[in-house]
Amino acid sequence: MTGFVSIRNLRKSYGSFEALKGIDLDVAKGEVVCIIGPSGSGKSTLIRCINRLEAFSEGSEIRVDGIPVTSGRALAKVRAEVGMVFQSFNLFPHLTVRQNVMLAPRRVRGTTRAEASAQADRLLDRVGIGNQADKYPEHLSGGQQQRVAIARALAMEPQVMLFDEPTSSLDPEMVGEVLDVMRDLARTGVTMIVVTHEMGFASQVADRVIFMDAGQIVEEGPPAQVLSHPREPRTRDFLGAVLNH
């Protein structure tokens, strides 16, 4: 079986250091996959390879909706189908919230200004910040900024959404509002690959949890199994450390 996102023998090195040591992963359409693991285990590198923010080694293969992720023309197609949300939001500070959401549809899809604006307002309503559309990002809280970032990614109507620790740089009281938006999103059938340390979110929302360590997938399965009854000692150690800290 090959997934909507299919990763074969994915290797990535920084100099002589191998950050990914041959990852095989298939994610089905509409599936929600959470990736957990210690810091430095290669989680970010893995999802950044999917839209090729990182180049990967020869012999590795990634396909999204059947399209090979290579450099060049096909890459534009893949990036149009794959949205990404970063730990540090990365909103465009010189644009208002609405303009942040409108930019990619306007430029990449050639959507008219009126259409893009209406779509932005719909999306901002959906993530609960419709009333902040004319503000600049710096005047928003972290949680609000991250919700704008989600709306911005959704404006391209992606089939797949990648999240790289979307709540890790938020004050604790704002984590919930972002996770709620992601939970709603999961119900709409968008394929989601989420790197997270939020075990509650993973256990409630994920169809599958993947535990990574040292550039490899160590264990994967339904959340109830991986999080509550891990088979591998490394998974047990990690979960023990996370839950007791």
Binding site: L53, N90, F92, H94, A104, V108, M156
Partner: peptide
Amino acid sequence: KGQFEASAALGLSGRQTMADVILPQ
């Protein structure tokens, strides 16, 4: 760097990234 990455992830071309995101800042 995050500004370049966010632009790339949205599918903006190199030229669009410069014109709409990087140079205005």
